[in-house]
Amino acid sequence: MPKKYVMLVDTERCVNCKACEVSCRAEWNTPLGYSRNWVSEVMAVDPNGMPTLSLLSGRCMHCDSPPCVAACPTGASYKRDDGIVLVDRDLCTGCEFCIDPCPYNARFRDPTDGMISKCTFCQPRIDAGEEPACVHVCFTRALMFGDANDPSSEVARRLAEGTWQRLVTTEVDVGPNLYYSKGTQFDATVLPQKKSPTVAAQTLAVVNPGLKIGLGGMLGLFGAAGVLKLVKRKEEVASHEH
């Protein structure tokens, strides 16, 4: 069975120390003002009327149906067989077609090199048999990472307990692979949002079928003219023979 990497976020263990953010920035040298991961604070009121504060460590969700991959015109954004969504820097043009389709705002354009940047689950570390940097430094063990298809892995055992939920809505569910403790309060600031694509993407969405219709129409028109000419030619030949 192929690997399927997932991350579990135990929100009751998170203390908002930001070590995950710092380690990520150190690992990937992200520019000042940008981060590949973050901790969101969600304030809510519990059924007893008491205020609650949920701490949600967020990043690219490495979705099962990643809209960013579908939006990428060059194939720079792709999903590996083990579920990790990556950006091939050789192919990335920094066009940002992929940024708006992400319902979790997990992508940004790195101003230092113009490339699209996002969490990679620290793919080089994983390929070397290590944990992602954020998981490695999380001293409260709020973050767990592993192969959900390996029954012996900790994440598979914890997922089997059924005490997890994903950040999805009835409108937006692209199969995120980050799981949060069940009962964690979500609000509009963290829930996935379906955003309008860029004007260029919207234009292309009209141009693409428009050209197909135009081309089909022309082929139909001149195809019909050709058939008509053939019929006339046959009639002419037949009349000559008579």
Binding site: A70, A71, C72, P73, T74, G75, F97, K212
Partner: peptide
Amino acid sequence: IIRGSLRF
């Protein structure tokens, strides 16, 4: 070349 939902 054109990949994703923009492909023809």
